[in-house]
């Protein structure tokens, strides 16, 4: 009920107040996006810690017997797709800023496809791994990584998709060539959201590179 931006208030506000609250909200989306990356960093750091801890401990010489690795092709595919998605999102955001809304939409939807592709590959990879989950420390952390990455890709793709859907609906609702670039409250919130989302995708691609190296290459 206190979602003031979407509700009608029982009293009238001055334009300054409206602007002030809107800025607060834009700031919240901005800093919320960064805080979310911080949260995710700690989550992934826990996984990385587990990886290096078990690798260093090598208990029972069962860190990674026979140097078994999950199929590298999958690893590269998943990461490349997420990198492409991140690049597309970044590209799209740049184009959006310079006013090319169509470019942003096309890039975005291709990005969603890439994200879904990465998600699918990450799930399908379970059928192709040459080890049982409990066969080694490596196998365990790999399963942990897969589950977390499924979550990450799902969240990132969801975020991208909802932003694009919002963009389409804005168009449908208010018409015009580029309601996303308007000065209305919803357009400004939208752009803040796109910015946070772009950062998150960049984070996904970068952290993905780290884990690609850890799980497939090292």
């Amino acid at each position: 009920m206190t979602d003031t931006s979407h509700n009608q208030k029982p009293f009238s506000e001055t334009p300054e107040e409206v602007e002030y609250e809107l800025r607060g909200q834009i700031g919240a989306i901005w800093s919320g996006g960064r805080l979310f990356i911080g949260m995710y960093t700690f989550l992934l750091a826990s996984l990385a810690f587990s990886y290096f801890y078990l690798r260093a401990a090598n208990n029972g010489l069962l860190w990674r017997p026979h140097n078994i690795t999950a199929p590298t092709s999958y690893g590269w595919t998943i990461w490349t797709l997420s990198l492409v998605a991140a690049a597309l999102v970044l590209f799209g955001q740049r184009r959006l800023r310079s006013g090319n809304v169509l470019d942003w939409q096309v890039a975005g939807w291709v990005g969603v496809a890439c994200g879904l592709g990465a998600l699918g590959a990450q799930i399908w990879e379970f059928t192709a791994v040459p080890f049982y989950p409990g066969s080694s420390g490596y196998a365990s952390t790999f399963i942990g990584w897969s589950v977390i990455n499924i979550g990450t890709l799902a969240v990132a793709t969801y975020w991208l998709e909802t932003t694009l859907a919002r963009s389409l609906r804005m168009r449908k609702k208010s018409g015009g060539a580029s309601p996303e670039l308007a000065t209305t409250a919803s357009a400004r919130l939208f752009r803040a959201n796109v910015s946070s989302m772009t950062y998150f995708w960049g984070f996904v691609a970068l952290s993905g590179a780290l884990f690609l190296a850890m799980f497939y290459l090292l």
């Binding site: 587990s50 801890y53 078990l54 401990a57 090598n58 208990n59 029972g60 069962l62 860190w63 990674r64 049982y132 989950p133 409990g134 066969s135 080694s136 420390g137 490596y138 196998a139 365990s140 952390t141 399963i143 942990g144």
Partner: peptide, 12 residues
């Protein structure tokens, strides 16, 4: 049945 916390299986 992963082995994160199972020392005998390469966890700790």
């Amino acid at each position: 049945q992963t082995a994160f916390y199972v020392t005998e299986h390469g966890g700790s």
